[in-house]
Nucleic acid binder design. Structure first.
Length: 570
RNA sequence: GUGCCUAUAGCUCAGCGGAUAGAGCGCUUGCCUACGGAGCAAGAAGUCGGGGGUUCGAAUCCCUCUAGGCACGCCA
């Protein structure tokens, strides 16, 4: 299967350009620059398999759209996969795929196996996807998990188009939060040793610290009774990261790079960035921003002088503090240094998955990167909107401080890793996500995940039964396949385009919707196209058996692209 | 008040400049002596939040209004 044939719309677009140039060469059409032509799968069978609207050429070619369409169609070059080119009013060109070629794709699909529709458009390019990036203070919160699922799905889609992808986790283990974590664990530790404690002093009240404290007591006894928070922070951090990694592994997410914010201080990168911004004249020292009005000046109080970044020069609504009056940097400064580091590591694209609440912060970082003279356009951001948990139709409140939150682990326990992956992936990142816990707990067919996986299971069922009856697909004649099977193959051939769009637009939800459409195409065929039935001639059975092998390859590939399992039985 | 996101079938959501607006669930009616019925077939269900505008053509682009969400720290 050549790469171009995995992307039939691209192939047809190229042929259309050729046809138009050819028509211009023999003066059938006047000279004009060819605009973008959008070839897409047709919606209905009478409109062929692929269609393109050429009405927009009407002005350029100074003629009526139908005539133009006919002239282009007449000049279309021949291709093995293309059976017919038809024209329809008011100015559509419809393409029909050659059935013989289509049926032969069954063998191509089987030959590609787990790598089917592996594209090469991103070949030789390196991408980085930064996601999750939660500080190791608590188990992964459900609010973080949407970004986790989307981030990993983006990484998988980029890999499918040929990119070399790095999955990165950015964290800070030096902040106030981590100190509080250490102090909280220390209290839980003392409690585990039998000392009375005041639970109101616990910043982190979750049960998980009790478990870690118990483990610590079993390892060290009361040896740490007189220690301050520091060894507890170290221990808690290590344990928390193990817990987080274990959770992520449950949904098949594996980061291959953990980037510690502290390394930017150790290397001096943070202060180098500040110096560079100062040298370029983008900073100033003041107690209030330069453009502050009288009221703001009055409200400012006396915090002392901070170092400000003139982000307003880059379109920001206000200038931002880089270094506080007490000499400590804000989060912004190291974040700019981090993104500078990312760009300088030479990735072709850096994708950053952020929650909606980080949108403004990211804009500031982007301005900082631009101020340093770097190309901020390499940084792509996917903003995932808030997840609301619903139970009994009511919103469930989530807090990672009080310990009554819903973690990703909770969600997986109540449903399944596959249901969580699909549920969090199957909508656009822009949309606010309502996760219905009641529905998720049900594990009924109301969840599309079962519908999709069931298609794969049904294929496996055929092969099991075929093996028992000694039926094989040796010497199968694919021309014996019928219209129903071809309908599925047409759908299967859309996968290349789906992946290409999902990668170029950074929209992995496209794969989730495609999966549902694919299953929706599969099930009616399964019902009507029997393999092991007494009325099915042996040679037809062979062809159909091979067809189902190809169907299973496609279904498995799509499930794996979403990070889901492809079960043989359910 | 300002910025960003959202508003499409009873519900959850796709579609984001092209031909009669789609899917799943739910609902109605059929289909089990055939490889697993977690299935299939048929059907009902939509002034694409309201109003203007651009275009040969708008759910899609622009303006505006309404409703909901998230942000607007010398927090991280």
């Amino acid at each position: 299967m050549r790469d171009t044939l995995k992307l039939l719309p691209n192939e047809l677009t190229g042929m259309l350009h050729e046809a138009i140039r050819s028509a211009q060469a023999d003066a059938s059409l006047p000279a004009f620059d060819i605009p973008a032509l959008d070839v897409r799968p047709s919606k209905r069978a009478d409109q062929g398999d692929f269609s393109v609207a050429v009405m927009a050429l009407s002005k350029l070619a100074r003629g009526n759209p139908l005539d133009i369409a006919q002239k282009i169609a007449a000049h279309m070059p021949a291709a093995e996969f293309l059976a017919a080119t038809e024209v329809a009013p008011p100015g559509y060109i419809n393409f029909r795929v050659n059935p013989v070629w289509l049926k032969a794709q069954v063998n191509a699909i089987i030959a590609e196996g787990d790598q089917v529709f592996q594209l090469e458009t991103g070949q030789g390019k390196r991408a980085q996807v930064e996601f999750v990036s939660a500080n190791p203070t608590a188990p992964l919160h459900i609010g973080r998990s949407r970004g986790a699922i989307v981030g990993d799905a983006v990484a998988r889609v980029l890999e499918a188009t040929g990119y070399e992808v790095q999955r990165e986790y950015y964290f800070n283990n030096a902040g106030v939060q981590m100190t509080n974590l250490g102090k909280s664990l220390r209290l839980r530790y003392l409690q585990a040793l039998g000392d009375p404690i005041d639970e109101n002093e616990l910043t982190y009240q979750g049960e998980y610290l009790k478990d870690i404290a118990t483990k610590l007591v079993s390892e060290r006894g009361d040896a740490l009774r007189d220690s301050d928070w520091k060894p507890f922070k170290e221990y808690a951090e290590t344990e928390m990261f193990e817990i987080i990694k274990t959770t992520l592994k449950r949904v098949d997410i594996l980061h291959n790079q953990f980037f510690n914010e502290n390394s930017l201080y150790d290397s001096g990168a943070v202060w180098d960035v500040l110096k560079e911004l100062e040298q370029k004249g983008y900073t100033y020292k003041a107690s209030v921003p330069e453009d502050a009005d009288a009221e703001e000046r009055a409200d400012a109080g006396d915090k002392g002088e901070a170092i400000w970044f003139r982000s307003t020069q880059f379109g920001d609504a206000k200038d931002r503090v880089l270094v506080k009056a007490n000499g400590d940097p804000t989060y912004t400064l190291p974040d700019i240094a981090y993104h500078k580091d990312k760009i300088e590591r030479g990735f072709d694209i850096c994708v950053n998955i952020l929650g909606a609440d980080h949108y403004v912060q990211h804009q500031v970082v982007r301005h900082g990167v631009t101020a340093l003279g770097l190309d901020a356009s390499k940084i792509h951001v996917i903003i995932v909107q808030i997840v609301h948990l619903l139970r009994g139709g009511e919103k469930v409140k989530m807090s990672s401080r009080k310990g009554d939150f819903e973690t990703l682990d909770d969600l997986i326990d109540q449903t399944s890793a596959d249901a969580v992956r699909y549920g969090l992936l199957a909508r656009t990142s822009d949309s606010h996500l309502n996760f219905d816990l009641d529905l998720a707990v049900k594990q009924t067919n109301e969840n599309p995940v079962y519908y999709i996986q069931y298609a794969h299971v049904r294929c496996a069922g055929i092969f099991r039964e075929a093996a028992l009856r000694g039926v094989t697909d040796d010497g199968a004649d694919l021309n014996l396949l019928g219209d129903a099977e071809m309908a599925f193959l047409r759908k299967a051939l859309e996968l290349g385009e789906v992946l290409e769009l999902a990668a170029s637009h950074l929209e992995p939800h496209r794969v989730a919707f495609y999966a549902l459409e694919l299953a929706n195409t599969f099930h009616p065929i399964f019902d009507n196209v029997r393999v092991l039935h007494s009325e099915v001639p042996p040679e037809v059975a062979k062809a159909r058996l091979r067809f189902y092998r190809a169907a299973q390859v496609i279904l498995k590939r799509v499930l794996r692209l979403m990070g889901m399992t492809a079960p043989e039985v359910m």
